Amino acid sequence: MSPRRAAPIEVIERLRAAGCVFAEDEARLLTAAAGTPAELEQLLGLRESGLPLEQVLGWVEFCGLRITVRPGVFVPRRRTGLLVKRAARLIRPGSVVVDMCCGTGAVGAALLAGEPELTLYAVDIDPAATACARENLAPRGGTALTGDLFAPLPRALLGRIDAIVANAPYVPTDAIARMPPEARLHEARVALDGGPDGLEVQRRLVAAAPEWLAPGGQLLVETSSSQAPQTLAIFARHGLTARVVHSRKLDATVVIGATALIGARSA
């Protein structure tokens, strides 16, 4: 079916009753995805049960790409496009890039779409996430690895990575209960929980990053606007010259830090 085909009004009404804010758009997508009325009923039932639309469809649009999404895997948000945009400015053909805490691998896939000549690794502690990331990255030449932060990376990459991009979990533990049910009930807690202040994973990531980065290498970490000053301080504590970038349009915040160039005087 064409994705522009109008959805039946009863589908829209059922989605509205289920609390879907963008019922018309969702109805159109579900109708387009269903090959038969029975398939539409199945998809609609999953959505009414609270399953995220992206997991019902099996994909999400991200930075102009259709990214595969599997059950339980963190769904990439539109705001993470800022992380992609800023990283894309820093890479070139032949750059070695790591998509850390990769989830679906959406960030890495978007970077490879813009620069196919990257050497790209994606890492996540959740095997379900890396299985999904392989689906999105393997056709583009990326590699997905399962493990805790830098642990699964080849040791040969020490001091050779040009850019690390990370949408590490940054939701404070107590705040997870206030998240929309689509996230807190259907996405892996390990992809959301950043510890008591939301910064535990960031601390570990930033502490380990300098030895993996090449001279002048860049670390880019998504965070919240309220947490940005603390994230900036973590970067400084580990010798990275850092700045905060914010997009009002995307409601997104990224902290970008660089290691010193060989022979350069410290800032």
Results as ranks from 00 to 15, higher is better:
1 M>Y: 11
11 V>N: 04
12 I>T: 12
13 E>W: 07
14 R>Y: 02
16 R>A: 03
19 G>Y: 05
19 G>E: 01
20 C>A: 06
21 V>H: 13
23 A>V: 09
24 E>Q: 15
27 A>H: 03
29 L>A: 06
30 L>K: 00
31 T>H: 08
31 T>I: 00
32 A>M: 15
32 A>I: 05
34 A>I: 10
38 A>M: 13
40 L>T: 00
42 Q>P: 03
46 L>M: 10
46 L>E: 11
47 R>I: 05
48 E>T: 12
51 L>I: 04
52 P>F: 01
55 Q>L: 01
56 V>S: 00
57 L>K: 03
60 V>L: 13
61 E>G: 15
62 F>R: 03
63 C>P: 07
65 L>Q: 03
74 F>I: 12
77 R>F: 10
88 A>D: 10
92 R>E: 12
93 P>C: 10
98 V>H: 03
101 C>I: 09
102 C>W: 10
104 T>K: 14
105 G>L: 05
105 G>I: 03
105 G>P: 01
106 A>C: 15
107 V>M: 15
112 L>M: 09
113 A>P: 06
116 P>H: 04
117 E>V: 13
118 L>W: 01
119 T>F: 12
120 L>T: 10
122 A>L: 09
122 A>G: 00
123 V>L: 09
125 I>K: 05
126 D>Y: 05
129 A>D: 04
133 A>Y: 00
134 R>F: 07
134 R>G: 06
135 E>W: 02
136 N>F: 03
137 L>V: 03
138 A>P: 01
140 R>P: 02
140 R>N: 09
142 G>F: 06
144 A>S: 08
145 L>R: 14
145 L>K: 12
146 T>R: 02
146 T>L: 04
148 D>K: 15
149 L>D: 01
149 L>T: 08
149 L>M: 14
151 A>S: 13
154 P>R: 15
157 L>V: 07
162 D>V: 10
164 I>V: 15
171 V>I: 11
171 V>H: 02
171 V>W: 08
171 V>E: 01
171 V>D: 01
171 V>A: 00
172 P>E: 07
174 D>E: 15
176 I>W: 08
179 M>Y: 06
182 E>R: 14
182 E>L: 15
184 R>M: 12
184 R>D: 04
184 R>W: 05
187 E>Q: 13
187 E>L: 13
187 E>K: 08
190 V>R: 08
194 G>Y: 07
197 D>L: 02
198 G>Y: 00
200 E>D: 14
202 Q>C: 06
204 R>F: 08
204 R>E: 05
206 V>N: 02
208 A>V: 05
209 A>D: 00
209 A>Q: 01
209 A>S: 07
213 L>N: 00
217 G>P: 01
217 G>Y: 01
219 L>K: 06
220 L>I: 03
225 S>W: 15
226 S>K: 12
229 P>Y: 04
232 L>S: 05
232 L>T: 11
234 I>F: 02
234 I>S: 01
236 A>Y: 06
237 R>G: 10
237 R>W: 13
238 H>I: 11
238 H>F: 13
241 T>C: 11
243 R>H: 13
244 V>R: 02
246 H>T: 07
249 K>Y: 14
249 K>T: 11
250 L>V: 08
252 A>S: 03
253 T>M: 09
253 T>R: 03
260 A>F: 00
261 L>T: 12
263 G>L: 06
263 G>A: 14
264 A>D: 14
264 A>N: 04
267 A>L: 12
